[in-house]
Amino acid sequence: MGLIKESQQEQLKEKFKDLDEKIKLIVFTQEMECQYCRETRGLMEDLADLADKIDIEVYDFVNDKEKVEEYNIDKIPATVVEGEKDYGVRFYGIPAGYEFTSLVATIMNISSSESELSEKTIEELKKIDKPLNIDIFVTLTCPYCPNAVEIAHKLAKENDFIKSNMIESSEFPELMQKNNITSVPTVVVNNDMNFPGNLPEKEFVDNLIKAVT
């Protein structure tokens, strides 16, 4: 079906030459009853075709119970970006539109042997020593959203207590309603506190730490 334009394919092939660690895109899908399952799977397959270092695994949400449990997946479509290990980085819903930028940036970051966070952030993150779940509600038409998703995913890579999930709002209206999401990006911490996510890294981390302490 080819969501990735030819010119983008060329750009990506070039970019993916800088990949360090191998990346595994683990897609949870189901042929029926899932709005963008097919498109998500197609997008990830196309991405995996662009680099030797990117592999893809596809699982069925209903039949592959073991994997669903292993990766703690509770809705689909879901994509895990796994590097050396599973850092707790998830995309729920299709990372198309502006979120494609988040997906590519996250692949680069997870693969990189270095952290892209500032030294100050890395220091601050040491304060987080309890499980912390970050849900970033986005839409595909939101130019500010990738910033929030990219930061949260970087934090998850840095600190094993942190799990980070992009949630494409329009595919999960019940979650949107439950969390009273009325603008994006909104960051929901531990299913409870929330703050607007359009922030520089430092303020993002400050808000996160304020929310859990």
């Binding site: 839409t139 595909l140 038409t141 939101c142 329009s170 209206p173 949107m176 009273n180 603008s183 994006v184």
Partner: peptide, 17 residues
């Protein structure tokens, strides 16, 4: 603000289905 008031319709339109 952020509770139903938006300054970015492009971003937030899909939330008001």
């Amino acid at each position: 603000v952020g509770k139903g008031i938006s300054y970015c319709a492009t971003c937030d339109a899909p939330l008001y289905k």
